[in-house]
Amino acid sequence: MRISQPKDFLTGLMFLFFGAAAMVLSRGLTIGTAAKMGPGYFPFVLGLLLAALGAVLLWRSLLPAKDRESWPSLQLKPLAIVLLSVFLFSQILKPFGLLLSTALLVVMVSKASHEFRWREALANAAVLVVIVLAVFVYFLKFQIPVWPAFTAG
């Protein structure tokens, strides 16, 4: 058995997983009857449908095909840096305030580019801190912690 369509294969697995998860989780809710549907009815049916679609995709991906697809290629560096920077921003925004978080996010996420240069990233961060202060804090007056929590009081 050879996988001729890896992308369909993986999509099938993904649909099966989400479909099965929806079905299992819906069992914990009231399913009810067609006339009086409980909160679990619609998600259960959708889960079943999704799992079925996943199964068809899986089955089709194993059929012999004329032109084989390649497995998707991954580059984890940009993905990991972008997602981690965003996550980190969400964690430090409240304790450290908007300005420090902005600077850190910009410098850190700039690392994801293959053209990264320290000086440029720092300058970019400085410019963006000023813009953020002017636009979001003074002009749009967003309710957002600006300065680090430990400087207050």
């Binding site: 965003v86 996420v109 957002i144």
Partner: peptide
């Protein structure tokens, strides 16, 4: 404007917008 300077700004505005 080179992309390497733009995307940090786009991402930053997304994050601030999301918080708000």
């Amino acid at each position: 404007v080179p992309y390497r300077l733009l995307y940090p700004a786009i991402l930053l505005f997304c994050c601030i917008g999301l918080y708000s």
